[in-house]
């Protein structure tokens, strides 16, 4: 006698993979958000972003509002001058899309500066918060309780989703607090910021997902939890340095595309989605073959 794998006789129907992924993600996000490391993420990223934001506002005041007034200055230009300005900024930043967004006010320069200078910390903070989440399950063998109930695909998806939710939530909270403080004290106007911030959050969602998947990869391949942090941290730094010297990495590694991602430039989205697919795919294949 044979039976369907989904509903064994005498047994119960196994829930669909999506439901299982959400259950794992919920447990994961909850466990992370109440952890010391999540508080460390919030405080560290808050201090870095807040410090850079405060410095940018100070510089803006000192220069008579040249940063915050970029949009107004640009609007005052003639059509030819506008095109010249866009060309010039695009040459400097390496992206016409980004130049357009900055000059036309879609991405306020103050937000751009904060994102540009503070995002270097996010990959490391993502790694720090979640480097051990899968590794600990495997090494403590708790994975044996989980993986007799969940297939490895939904398990991995849930782990990544939960990690992503926790990190993205922390970033959004920091941004909301900074914007709230800046507008409440009259240093910034909320109106022009909203569109840029929402775009930046859209890009940030992909940015965080890429580094969460990167962390998951190291969490699966490392023979011990702390090695996931060590290898992950070393490879982040190594790839970043190498992206300055090695030509293929200069054009393909994530770090070269992040600010362009925050304006939702299609090419940057493509690069990030490609990396996310590769990290997740390789991690799944490794986990699938791994004895737990």
């Amino acid at each position: 006698m044979s039976s369907s794998p989904a509903t064994p006789p005498g047994g119960h129907a196994v829930p669909n993979p999506l439901t299982q992924s959400f259950l794992v993600a919920r447990h994961e996000a909850k466990a992370m958000l109440i952890s010391f490391r999540a508080a460390f993420f919030l405080v560290t990223y808050g201090l870095i972003s807040g410090g850079i934001g405060a410095a940018a506002l100070w510089a803006d005041r000192k220069t008579g509002g040249r940063l915050s007034g970029v949009g107004a200055q640009f609007e005052a230009l003639s059509l030819e001058d506008k095109q010249e300005a866009i060309r010039s900024v695009a040459e400097t930043l390496g992206s016409e899309h980004l130049a357009n967004a900055l000059l036309k006010g879609h991405l306020p320069p103050l937000v751009y500066i904060v994102l540009l200078l503070s995002t270097f910390a996010i990959p490391f903070l993502c790694l720090l918060v979640g480097y051990n989440r899968i590794a600990d399950d495997i090494h403590s063998r708790f994975a044996r309780y989980l993986l007799q109930r969940v297939h490895r695909g939904p398990y991995l998806a849930g782990k990544i989703l939960g990690h992503w939710l926790a990190c993205f939530f922390a970033i959004v909270v920091v941004h909301a607090i900074l914007v709230g403080v800046a507008t409440a004290t009259g240093r910034l106007e909320l109106g022009p910021l909203v569109d840029g911030i929402l775009r930046a959050w859209g890009g940030m969602a992909l940015f965080v997902l890429a580094y969460v998947a990167f962390s998951a990869f190291w969490s699966v391949v490392s023979p011990a939890s702390f090695l996931a942090l060590l290898f992950g941290g070393m490879s982040l730094l190594g790839l970043w340095f190498m992206s300055f010297w090695v030509e293929p990495l200069r054009t393909t590694w994530l770090g070269r595309w992040d600010t362009r991602l925050f304006t939702l430039e299609p090419q940057a989205i493509g690069v990030y989605l490609g990396h996310i697919a590769v990290f997740m795919g390789v991690t799944y294949l490794l986990l699938r073959r791994k004895d737990v």
Partner: peptide, 16 residues
């Protein structure tokens, strides 16, 4: 990578 879901439940040794 596909455990026998819904057919077998196991008590693993030394699993925390």
């Amino acid at each position: 990578g596909h455990p026998p879901l819904g057919r077998v439940l196991a008590l693993p040794q030394d699993a925390a």
